[in-house]
């Protein structure tokens, strides 16, 4: 052991500490009503995480499917009855293919958000059970 290590050891021992009777009593009293908690089974959370993940993904896919089916069934909007020259020029420009592709975007976002929520919940559960 070198000089510095020796001095650190010696100086630590010079810190004169006594645990008072009062503190000993406090600790004993606070432990009296307690008992060690049983360790939580580790397999169940894993199954739960998988089940919740699958449920979330299935729900998101179902939503996407329902939305797409509905979109296909919707009729094209009636041509505007406005007789102004501007309206007549603008209405033929609408492209349905491009529009329907854009409408699925929020659902993709929703799916990503759901997945992100599941990941957050998983991390929280891990933090909660870990000491």
């Amino acid at each position: 052991m070198d000089k510095l290590a020796e001095q650190l050891k010696r100086d630590a021992e010079m810190i004169d500490v006594k645990v008072s009777d009062d503190l000993e009593r406090r600790i004993a009293a606070s432990l009296q009503g307690l008992s060690p908690e049983r360790e939580a089974p580790r397999q169940r959370p894993a199954v739960f995480w998988w089940a919740s993940s699958l449920t979330g993904v299935t729900a998101a896919l179902l939503l996407i499917t329902v939305f797409n089916v509905r979109t296909e069934r919707e009729e094209l909007p009636q041509a505007t009855r406005d007789t102004s020259p501007v309206a007549t020029v603008v209405s033929p420009i609408i492209e349905w293919n491009a529009q329907s592709a854009m409408l699925t975007s929020p659902l993709r976002q929703e799916l990503d958000d759901l997945q992100s929520d599941i990941d957050k919940a998983r991390r929280k559960v891990r933090d909660d059970i870990g000491l």
Binding site: R26, S30, L31, L34, P36, E37, R38, E39, L131
Partner: peptide, 18 residues
């Protein structure tokens, strides 16, 4: 420091199985 010591032993006993 005394409070921290007490809390330490309480937590240690409670989570001893971990």
């Amino acid at each position: 420091a005394e409070d921290a010591l007490q809390d330490t032993f309480i937590a240690a006993y409670r989570y001893l199985n971990s």
